[in-house]
């Protein structure tokens, strides 16, 4: 009992005003129609074919990009654990630095790289392959997701991997475990909290993005994020927009529960 509990009161007030009441406002609009009476229409609107299709596509893209991020990030974390680059906060530095170039510009830069006359097509044609249509494709959107959110997968996995005691791994070898067995039975289980944190931090923003699909999909591919955004900015139908957002919160709640189950540190691996 060193510190006064009331030091936490500004934070508690902030939670109520900045998080609880605003989320309640979404629920308020989500369960209301234009006349102000209670309805489930906005929630059930998720089952309309065009919304369902957008949600399915979003899920597909989000799962794909999360898996790619995981596959890319795990070896990176393992390498950094053993290399000299892993020390002295260098890693955090290298991964945070790109954020100083605004994320909209970084995403847009992929347009430059993917265009018909762009850098990547020049390389493709240089090795004798035909020019590819890379922009405005699902592939471009997934690439944008992987690019934007990869750091959020690397950091939590690196955080847990770097905390594994070297002696534990050596003990496994001494007891006769093969490299693969050590990886499967020692390293991966000990990294689960980081993996779950990373998966959440990539999956949710990928699932709900509207910016990446706008910029790299050329506005032709509608994800659920685009639909929600348009309800607020173009159609001015806050009720429908709120209803769809509430449905999206189901995925967010699931990921919070998963995180609570696997990460006992209370989210310290997230950053």
């Amino acid at each position: 009992m060193i510190y006064k509990k009331r030091y936490a009161s500004p934070f508690i007030i902030w939670i109520i005003v900045g998080t609880v009441i605003p989320l309640a406002s979404i629920a308020y609009y989500g369960f209301m129609d234009r006349t102000g009476s209670f309805t489930f229409t906005n929630i059930l609107a998720m089952f309309q074919p065009n919304h369902l299709q957008a949600l399915g596509l979003s899920l597909l893209f989000a799962i794909t990009s999360t898996v790619i991020c995981l596959v890319l990030a795990f070896p990176m974390a393992m390498i950094l654990r053993e290399s000299k680059f892993g020390k002295q906060g260098f890693m955090i530095f290298v991964i945070i630095l790109p954020m100083w170039m605004n994320f909209l510009l970084r995403t847009m830069a992929w347009q430059v790289l993917l265009e018909r006359q762009g850098v990547i097509n020049s390389i493709i044609t240089a090795i004798g392959l035909p020019r590819q249509e890379l922009m405005n494709t699902p592939g471009a959107i997934v690439l944008g997701m992987v690019y934007d959110f990869l750091p959020f997968m690397i950091l939590p996995i690196y955080n847990t991997v770097s905390k594994i005691d070297k002696n534990i791994i050596e003990a496994a070898y001494d007891l006769g475990a093969s490299k693969i067995r050590t990886f499967k039975d020692i390293i991966v289980p000990m990294t689960v909290p980081g993996i779950v944190s990373g998966v959440t931090m990539v999956f949710i923003p990928s699932l709900t993005t509207f910016v990446i699909s706008n910029m790299l999909g050329g506005g032709k591919i509608n994800l659920i994020g685009n639909i929600i955004e348009q309800e607020f900015t173009v159609n001015s139908n806050w009720y429908l927009g709120s209803g769809l957002s509430l449905v999206m919160m189901i995925f967010i709640i699931i990921s919070m529960l998963l995180l609570q189950k696997f990460d006992k540190t209370g989210g310290e691996n997230l950053i």
Binding site: I204, L207, G225
Partner: peptide, 11 residues
């Protein structure tokens, strides 16, 4: 505390 961190930015 973790809600704003895990919540989708759009929400």
């Amino acid at each position: 505390n973790n809600i704003p961190l895990l919540n989708a930015d759009i929400v």
